[in-house]
């Protein structure tokens, strides 16, 4: 295995584009090292991105959004007060990944590129309308987060391409988001179901919403029907029931060691309701 430490994303992309065997990028490493240790994926070229300038930065963008470096670990994301105040759902999704120790290493970018439908940080990003900056040998492009995963363990990135930043839009006023997941234990599990809700209010009425579900389909899923169920409502019980029904209806899960189809479908609706209530109260100004 060759270990590379490029100093720019362009260099990293060129190393990857020129490699012939198995290539992996190293951001936090919490997936790559597990696969390496298990002998599941032993890369021929391992490209460590952490020496690239700016990869640990969280910066305000010109349009009032955020640019998050690809090596920012969960613990740094959680410690960023301004980001947490604006996008608590995005931050709490990331903070649910693994243990305190894993939080010291794991990154949004890695969680996204691992391609797991159960990735805890991805529904929050999708609900937030986040995008990523992709650098390739031929330049850069911007891609919506929901277009990155293409199947379990797979992404739409082309050979040689890598994510060089996560981009969150400006939050704006009277808005809130939340992420909830269901796991059998209280910590340390992979989501059996995950749900993120981001919404905006005018008074008591929801004017915009995005609902994303994790672990109920081959990729994290944006569910417009679930969002429509609550837009125009004050999140009354009827709206919540419609939201739950729409969330459950959007599920196309599998039976596996972590959960059943019936359970995932049912609990997706439960979580959608609970997450929507939290997002709503945050939009109302509740900081919890």
């Amino acid at each position: 295995m060759r270990y590379h430490t490029p100093s720019t994303f362009r260099d990293a992309a060129q190393i990857a584009a020129g490699a012939s065997g198995v290539t992996r990028f190293l951001a936090g490493g919490t997936d790559v090292l597990v696969q390496l240790r298990a002998g599941a994926v032993i890369p021929d070229d391992l490209i460590d991105l952490k020496k690239i300038a700016g990869v640990y930065d969280i910066a305000r963008t010109g349009d009032g959004g955020w640019r998050i470096g690809i090596a920012v670990p969960g613990i740094a994301l959680g410690a960023h007060e301004a980001l947490r105040a604006e996008w608590p759902g995005v931050v709490e999704g990331m903070e649910l990944v693994g243990s305190t120790q894993v939080q010291g290493r794991a990154t949004l970018t890695g969680n996204l590129c691992n391609g797991s439908p159960a990735a805890d940080s991805v529904p929050g990003l999708v609900a937030a309308g986040a995008s990523v900056e992709v650098t390739g040998p031929d330049g850069q492009r911007t891609v919506a987060v929901q277009d990155i995963p293409s199947g379990p363990g797979k992404t739409s990135l082309k050979p040689g391409e890598l994510i060089s930043a996560i981009l969150l839009p400006a939050r704006g006023d009277h808005a809130g988001d939340a992420y909830l997941r269901f796991i059998p234990r209280s910590e340390m599990d992979i989501a059996v179901v995950g749900c993120a809700v981001s919404l905006r209010l005018d008074g008591d009425t929801v004017t915009e919403a995005r609902v994303a579900l994790g672990a109920v389909a081959p990729v994290v899923k944006l569910v417009p029907a679930a969002a429509q169920a609550i837009v125009g409502t004050a999140l009354d019980d009827a709206a919540l029931d419609k939201l739950a029904a729409a969330a459950s209806a959007a599920c196309a899960p599998i039976d596996d060691k972590r959960g059943t189809i019936a359970f995932r479908t049912e609990v997706a609706g439960v979580l959608a309701k609970r997450a929507a209530k939290i997002a709503y109260s945050r939009a109302k100004g509740d900081r919890a």
Binding site: P184, R185, M188
Partner: peptide
Amino acid sequence: LDYRIPVASD
């Protein structure tokens, strides 16, 4: 990860 023994918060 999937052989789920109790953790401190359980």
